[in-house]
Design a protein around this nucleic acid. Structure first.
Length: 628
RNA sequence: ACCCCUGUAGCUCAGCGGAUUAGAGCGCAACGUUGCGGACGUUGAGGUCGAAGGUUCGAAUCCUUUCAGGGGUGCCA
């Protein structure tokens, strides 16, 4: 029995590279069960109880400006028109009503202030609840069962065979991995599919280059460095094409910006035709190149900690192409134009035409992507498919999704292009051919080297193995945070020092705060201070209370990051958690606090902070070292 | 020509489902360790939120126009 979707049969799916795991729903809290959101909900329903008209006014509780000494606020200005009273009066009346009634237990009191209805939390009750939630759920703290029973497919990383991964691949790889973890944390079954670039005209070019010059590169022989050889072939053929273009333009007296087709390009395209029609020699070469490239990629993935359920690559979908095209033509979604190419007219959706088959009869990226969508629907029945691909393909994905919607009659899964800005070098756009390129593996190696140097300078009392592990965790963490710490949609200006920053708003700063938390907890243990969970939480200082409140907002931060596909929201959140702890650490003694109830509270707060930082770093694909 | 993204402190960036006095990091200046880890902390200087209009009791945030940078615009991926 072959699987199919839209009546199009799909290839048999091989076993996944790693087991496809479902989220541990039994241990997952329901969403909205957490104290922070529950408190807001209770607050609003309590106010509506006081004055039912408020329900229509769309009242909501928000966080006040940081300079206001309150934990939550209801802005009364927006209700003024409806209630025909001044904001100050509304706030005043509500505050009085609220304070004279029995309050929701987590709220201390309401204070009317300049038209704002401000609330103070009862930190005894709220704080106890917030910290015990972290203690109860531990590694699961922050998770929610929002996506229960649904599947998300994430298309990410997708490097090209026969080339090295550059720092340009960092974003898709790391944003994709982080989004996979975040979506899992809110209850989705997640399938990461690394859609390798292993098909297309470029491999026709490569085959031609191999045919011409393979003997010039001894790296290509078995046992040396085949990817380097393939890479050299790639660079060389593009250099040759460029030279031919210049010569051709001179010969025909054309401007530099006018495109000309060269003999080499024609030969490359012919090779691609042979590839698509199943030429065994060409396919053999490509298979070999893929195998060698995968080994290179895997080293990077191992260092970054990213894994993929599938790494199928574009070539996997080639057998589906005739049926996909047939399907589109039968339904008049695609048609042959005057040049003999098959195109999809998307003018109804205000988009340009999409070519799905070239004049020479070969397939395009678009053809393979549509086939891939069909196959993924058949295999995984996903609720949503996310493409983590650069912003330069925004227009393209609109065309693809619009075409796919026509194919399914809008009955397919949600499709979303999670686009991100390019990484730009100070010298300008990265270009392999111009030699302006930084390889991802070199960046990671340099990061680990610098971290190792730093550890040696500090001469901490650690074994060689420990130092090596920490250097990797810290160095790679710095690189990952450099990426995830910035807004997704803007382009990143790359320079070595900010990419490898170990101070300030960086992963090492957060990791350092975590290592200090662990050191404190270990010290407490060594001094026989058993944590007691029957004592109340008595923190009673500003940074401590701010930290407790912040920890209670972790689930909300995860939800927001998931809904907007923005890991940077979590990066900001975790940095803030580490920063608040560092402030607390500087202001109060924790292990040395004489009052035993206070000390116990501070230690439990430290433990909860460590748990949240660790959970958060994990969602960002950053490891949390116990010592550093 | 059109479409998308971006413009906030000297530099790199948060904030932009409007709301009480616009926030970080780096850099700069001055401090802090006989206190649980100084990869740290404290204080300070530094902003007409690209510009101009508009909506609103209230705009960095929403709308219009405009300037600047980046990306894209059928047979590459």
């Amino acid at each position: 029995m072959t699987e199919q979707y839209l009546g199009i049969p799909v290839p048999v799916l091989s076993e996944s590279n790693i087991p496809i795991t479902k989220p541990d729903l039994l241990n997952m809290p329901r969403s909205n069960q957490y104290i922070w959101t529950a408190t807001q909900r209770d607050l609003i329903s309590h106010l509506v109880g006081l004055n039912p008209v408020l329900a229509e006014a769309g009242m909501r509780a928000t966080e006040p400006s940081p300079n206001v000494a309150a934990d939550l606020t209801v802005i009364c200005h927006e209700m003024a028109g409806r209630l025909r009273k001044s904001p100050a009066q509304i706030a005043q009346e509500l505050a009085e009503g609220f304070n004279s009634d029995p309050n929701p237990p987590t709220i201390q009191e309401a204070i009317a202030q300049k038209g704002y209805l401000n609330f103070l939390l009862n930190m005894h009750i709220f704080g106890n609840q917030a910290i015990s939630e972290v203690e109860t759920y531990q590694d699961h703290y922050g998770e929610q069962n929002i996506g229960e029973g649904e599947t998300v497919v994430i298309d990410c990383s997708s490097p090209n065979v026969a080339k090295y991964m550059s720092i340009g691949h960092l974003r898709s790889t790391i944003i994709g991995e982080s989004l996979a973890r975040i979506n899992r944390a809110i209850g989705y079954k997640v399938i990461r599919d690394n859609h390798l670039g292993d098909w297309g005209t470029q491999f026709g070019m490569l085959a031609r280059a191999h045919e011409l010059w393979a003997d010039d590169y001894e790296e290509l022989s078995e046992g040396t460095d085949p990817v380097k050889g393939l890479y050299k072939l790639y660079v060389r053929i593009h250099e040759e094409v460029e030279k031919e273009k210049i010569a051709e333009r001179e010969r025909s007296g054309l401007d530099a910006n006018e495109d000309v087709e060269t003999a080499l390009e024609r030969e490359g395209r012919r090779w691609f035709q042979r590839l698509e029609s199943g030429d065994e020699r060409a396919i053999e070469l490509l298979k070999w190149a893929t195998q060698k490239s995968l080994a290179e990629f895997q080293r990077v993935y191992d260092v970054l900690g990213s894994r993929y359920e599938y790494m199928l690559g574009e070539s996997f979908y080639i057998p589906m192409i005739p049926r996909v095209l047939e399907y589109m033509r039968e339904r008049n979604i695609a048609s042959i134009d005057e040049t003999g190419a098959i195109v999809v007219d998307l003018s109804m959706k205000n988009l340009d035409k999409l070519v799905v088959q070239k004049t020479d009869g070969t397939s395009l990226y678009s053809t393979r992507d549509l086939a891939t969508l069909v196959a993924r629907c058949a295999w995984f029945n996903p609720h949503r498919i996310i493409y983590v691909v650069g912003e330069d393909q925004q227009r393209y994905f609109r065309q693809i999704f619009a075409t796919f919607d026509m194919m399914t009659g809008n009955t397919g899964p949600q499709t979303e292009h999670v686009h991100f800005g390019m990484i730009r070098l100070p010298e300008g756009k990265m270009s392999t051919r111009a030699g302006r390129v930084i390889f991802l593996e070199d960046l990671l190696t340099e990061a680990v080297d610098r971290a190792r140097q730093k550890i040696d300078d500090l001469s901490r009392d650690l074994s060689r193995e420990e130092k090596e592990t920490i250097a990797r965790q810290v160095g790679v963490g710095a690189v990952v945070f450099f990426d995830l710490g910035q807004g997704r949609e803007r382009s990143i200006k790359f320079d070595w020092d900010s990419a490898l920053s170990f101070t300030g708003r960086s992963a090492p700063y957060i990791q350092y705060a975590y290592a200090r938390m662990r050191a404190l907890l270990q010290r407490a243990q060594k001094e026989q201070m058993e944590l007691r969970y029957d004592l109340p939480i008595e923190v009673t200082n500003q940074p401590g209370n701010a930290l407790i409140k912040h920890l209670s907002k972790f689930p909300e931060a995860i939800t927001r990051a998931a809904q907007t596909s923005r890991p940077d929201i979590l990066a900001e959140y975790i940095f803030r958690a580490a920063d608040l702890f560092t402030t607390l650490y500087d202001r109060v003694r924790i292990v040395n606090e004489p009052d035993s109830v206070r000390r116990n509270s501070l230690l439990r707060l430290t433990q909860a902070s460590a748990q949240v930082v660790k959970n958060g770093l994990d969602l960002l694909c950053i490891e949390a070292p116990e010592r550093m």
